[in-house]
Design a binder for these strands. Sequence first.
DNA 1: GTGAGATCTGCGGATTCCGCAGCCGTCACG
DNA 2: CGTGACGGCTGCGGAATCCGCAGATCTCAC
Lengths: 172, 172
Amino acid sequence: MHSVAVASRSAEHRDSRESRNGSTPHLDAVSLAIIEQLQEDGRRPYAAIGKAVGLSEAAVRQRVQKLLDQGVMQIVAVTDPLTVGFRRQAMVGINVEGDVESIADALTAMPEVEYVVMTAGSFDILAEIVCEDDDHLLDVINKRMRALPGVRSTESFVYLKLKKQTYMWGTR
Amino acid sequence: MHSVAVASRSAEHRDSRESRNGSTPHLDAVSLAIIEQLQEDGRRPYAAIGKAVGLSEAAVRQRVQKLLDQGVMQIVAVTDPLTVGFRRQAMVGINVEGDVESIADALTAMPEVEYVVMTAGSFDILAEIVCEDDDHLLDVINKRMRALPGVRSTESFVYLKLKKQTYMWGTR
DNA sequence: GTGAGATCTGCGGATTCCGCAGCCGTCACG
DNA sequence: CGTGACGGCTGCGGAATCCGCAGATCTCAC
């Protein structure tokens, strides 16, 4: 059993070395498994996770802490904003002239903007907005987003009903 | 101090009664505050939350359990899928003829679909897809989504870079 | 007014969290 | 080849947390 543990550990090292091609800080199979456990239940005890992935409780704790520190993962409560008092949400498609990334950064700085992604297709950027009411939504879109220099046009999709929202990738 | 606690409790009751107009199961100020605490840190101890919102540890535990059971909130680990090995993501705008909700339900049943929302605007539905590679993405969009009866057209926005992803509404 | 229901509190006992020391690999360097 | 630094895992206690339960209080309905 001891030799098995050693073998699996060196295998992980091989994995982490191979996956160091991208800019993102590696991620071996064990950390993946830990993340999957926490995607099922963000409060699952470290000992239970350790049993599931074949690691001691302390090792799981150290890895989780590292993943959090590195920003690879965050453990949070998520809700349907509509049930929490945010009446108006919208996805906004944006076309940009000039530097797309600087516009995206400007959007990122807005607290009402929950989600910003650069895309290929008929929009350069998609941004999700969460507001308390129509006035607030209108203000953000027309006064603040369209006022950014370089924003050529925007198209809004106001949310009527949220049907699905999961965070289970890797768990299927 | 005892009378103060009683007063605040009856105030909460008033809140919950007022907010019972929507179809969603109420949500008083204390539960809101608990959710905010867990949005900052999903593993925060119940006692610490209780101190912050003015409730005993056991009461916080009962409320959190209830919020989870009711599906109002979930405590999970969230990551940037790109760092976890899912190379291709896309937002897909969909136009529907006939019953929009049944199409949305069909999309919800697909494991690759992370996010489904019914919208007003030039799309009836927005769906976010998370896939491992281009083949997988192509398969989901062309073979499965466009094959649904009632789907008139789709437009895809492949993700190039995720710039922001937060879950802090209510905490600002 | 009386009982059902919901929610909060307080309290042990079991479980979990957390820091620390020690061990064992790998790697770099002389 | 040896040696020292470093990262990661284990095991171990003590402190903190979790969890179920019984009792109290308030509301609501009949």
